[in-house]
Design a protein around this nucleic acid. Structure first.
Lengths: 158, 158
DNA sequence: ACAAAAATCAAACTAAAGTATGAGTGAAAA
DNA sequence: TTTTCACTCATACTTTAGTTTGATTTTTGT
């Protein structure tokens, strides 16, 4: 075995090198100790700073809620051909649409103007405007035509 | 002035009270100073800890990408399986509705605003207004919502 | 009973929608 | 070739729709 051979051959040199390395190590250690003793306060402060910075980072990473980005994928479900309208109550509930708002929506879809709706429901034009505005907010649409389109698609109205 | 009268009458008592209050304040202040001096190191450490925790939090919030948790929600949209739309050409012809007007009508039914329709068809808003106005005349309706309702009923649009 | 949600009304806006009228262009029909 | 008609654009105007803010009164669910 050539490796053992080399080891035994240059053992003196190796020992010497090892001794030197150890000495250097010791010196370094002593130097470090000296520095630490001399700057104990600063080192302590530094350690505290590092530790608490780390703690802060950890806290921030742990305690921030991930922003939930909800992507709604509309999946088409085919229904029986018997064109009988079944009101999608679940959808209405999830959107938080009230009875009155639904009435307004229905009349809208029939082509009524806000004024006509107000007359039919015996309330003021203001009220209908409020209802429709809330409706658009809840349905996430901008116009009555969009509301009608979406409502039909989601079976909120026939 | 009764307030000034009261003031001058009981000036001694007031002064005495103020002096006492001041003394108490002084005592409290001295006590605080004492505590701070006595615990200077701890207070300093605490301050460092708080500051660097804050720094850590700030660093984490600033330098990390916002955690975005994407949730894909499948929403069921019901639809009739059999609805094969057949365009009622006879009706369209009898009403004298032109190709372009039909395009406008379709986009209307999709919930587009006049401006959006104009953009999609690469014409001006004026043109769309003219088209829609003519459309309402031909269909004998007053509003776009009525036009949509009637068009669906008459199978001019899906 | 009491808080929360729904329904109602109002004023003051801004933004669209719709009307009336006129006019130019290009293609197809008379 | 002239006329008709769909399509385009424009101005000026009126009406309707939609927003914002704020308030009061009913319902309604614990």
């Amino acid at each position: 075995m050539t490796i053992r051979k080399l080891f035994s051959k240059h053992i003196t040199i190796l020992l010497y090198g090892a001794g030197l390395a150890l000495l250097l190590f010791l010196l370094k250690w002593l130097e470090l100790r000296f520095i630490i003793f001399d700057h104990a306060f600063e080192v302590y402060m530094g350690a505290i700073a590092v530790i608490f910075t780390g703690l802060g980072i950890w806290l921030a990473l742990k305690l921030t809620k991930p922003k939930v980005h909800t992507v709604v994928v509309e999946k088409e479900v085919y229904r029986n051909a018997d064109n009988v309208f079944v009101f999608n109550e679940a959808e209405a509930a999830s959107l938080g649409i009230s009875k009155r708002e639904l009435e307004v929506l229905q009349l809208m879809a029939q082509g009524c103007s806000n004024n006509e709706i107000a007359e039919k429901l015996f309330v003021s034009l203001h009220t209908i405007k409020t209802h429709s505005s809330n409706l658009f907010e809840k349905m996430d649409v901008k116009r009555r035509t969009q509301a009608i389109e979406k409502a039909k698609r989601c079976n909120l109205i026939p």
